[in-house]
Amino acid sequence: MLKRVEFSGDHLDVLRELMNIAVGNATASIADLLQAFGTMHIPKIAISDIKGLKQYMHETIPSESSHYVTKQLFGGPLGGEFIFVITDEVAINLGNHLYDVEAPNDADIYDAVIELTNILSATMISRLTEELNIKVQFFLPSTQIIAGNDLIYLEETAEYSQIIIISTQMEFQNQNINGHIFILTKDAMIQSLKDLIDQKLEELYA
């Protein structure tokens, strides 16, 4: 098992502030690109483990609906996973809004979900990494429909000892679109995030 990376109050403060900026940007991008005007919640940041992550998701995501869960990996000096979760009902609303059809077909819905995920991940992660003076690469997103709120499979995550959970919620009331966003990063990447934050702090104290 890897050594735990300790985050100080200052590290968390920096991450929180950078994520606030990232979320503000994502809201503006969605308004601009998808003509949907809404709000996003102030991101919550927690350092946890797999058990904690599962529990957190159970507390955040309702168990009674089916969900479109879209995952997109990003890698480079900072790597992690961006997860966007919406209920199937909201996915249809999203398909309606983006494809402008009464009854969007499955392909339209998948495509709309991927498109929104993409805009969210690109704006949020890019803003964060820009502030940390690095560039990351985005990988192909994939969407699964999952019944209930067991969104993390044990086999996917068995090797992770420490996870940073960044979570927020978006709401676009006019379109009845709302969803949960999780950004997960783990183990060695937590150390690189800490180093990048240290550099950022050094720059400011210089």
Binding site: D13, V14, R16, L18, L201, L204
Partner: peptide
């Protein structure tokens, strides 16, 4: 409330 924001 953010020290980072104040410092910047």
């Amino acid at each position: 409330d953010s020290k980072l924001a104040r410092l910047s």
